[in-house]
Simulated assay, not measured.
Amino acid sequence: MSRTATLTRVMVIRPGATDFDDQGRMKGSLDMPLSERGEQQVETLAAALADIPFKTIYCCPSESARATADRLSEAHDVKVKVVDAFKNVDHGLWHGKLIEEVRRNHPRVYRQGIDHAEEFCAPGGEGLMEAKARVLKALNKCVRKGRDEIVALVIPEPMASVVTSLLNGQPIEDLWRRETDSASWELIDTEI
């Protein structure tokens, strides 16, 4: 007997911006609140997604992701579940470093982040391939629980791109464009 795959719709939502996002800095797993601009972005996002029928919102344990998820939950009257495995990628010694500084002072590493993003690992940090392995089990569990509904995931960059890559089977391209958040979202159909 063959088993048919179920198509699940996953909405990957990036939180509103933090001060580091506004400054073009790598925040990685640092826990930061939304900036004033980020709060405005979240209000706009909540209005744009007001008609989307979420039943549960899963989010990263960071302050910006939780604030974004909490605002969306108010608009939808749903629960927020914090998933520790969705913690953002650890950028080690490069937390807080300006992306422009990496481009200027480490041109080979910067180029690697563009051409081979999945091989990137900041000094003393976590590589994107490690992050993929870490998040896969939790992602599969959330997707399985969300059959026949839209699964909402509030996850900051670059972890949001790691999750998107796992869902759509595409490699991560240009890490540096995927380092900052601005309350964006994408809907992905995935088979489980």
Rank of each mutant, 00 (worst) to 15 (best):
S2R: 13
S2W: 09
T4P: 09
A5Y: 09
A5R: 13
L7C: 07
V10F: 04
M11K: 08
V12H: 00
V12D: 03
V12A: 01
V12P: 02
I13K: 04
G16I: 00
G16C: 02
D19S: 04
D21F: 09
D22P: 05
D22Y: 10
Q23R: 15
G24F: 02
G24L: 04
M26C: 10
K27E: 13
G28N: 05
D31Q: 01
P33V: 09
P33T: 08
S35N: 11
E36W: 09
E36C: 09
E39K: 12
E39R: 14
Q41Y: 10
V42I: 07
T44S: 14
A48Y: 05
A48P: 06
A50G: 12
I52E: 15
P53K: 07
K55T: 13
Y58A: 02
C60M: 03
C60G: 05
P61N: 01
S62G: 08
R66L: 15
T68C: 06
T68W: 02
A69E: 03
D70H: 14
E74Q: 15
H76V: 08
V78R: 00
V78W: 03
N88A: 10
V89C: 01
L93R: 13
L93G: 08
W94L: 09
L98A: 12
L98D: 11
I99T: 06
E100N: 06
E101D: 15
E101Y: 13
V102T: 06
V102Q: 03
R104V: 11
N105C: 11
N105T: 13
R108W: 12
H116C: 13
H116R: 14
E118K: 03
E118G: 05
E119M: 12
E119Q: 14
E119P: 07
F120L: 02
F120S: 02
C121T: 14
A122N: 05
P123I: 09
P123F: 09
G124Y: 11
E126F: 11
G127V: 00
M129C: 07
K132T: 02
K132Q: 00
K132F: 03
K132W: 00
A133S: 12
K137A: 10
G146M: 13
R147I: 09
R147Y: 12
E149F: 04
L153E: 03
I155D: 01
P158N: 10
A160E: 05
S165M: 05
S165R: 02
N168K: 06
G169D: 06
D174E: 14
L175I: 08
L175Q: 04
W176L: 07
S182I: 00
S182E: 10
S184V: 11
S184Y: 08
E191Q: 13
E191A: 15
I192Y: 14
I192E: 15
I192H: 15
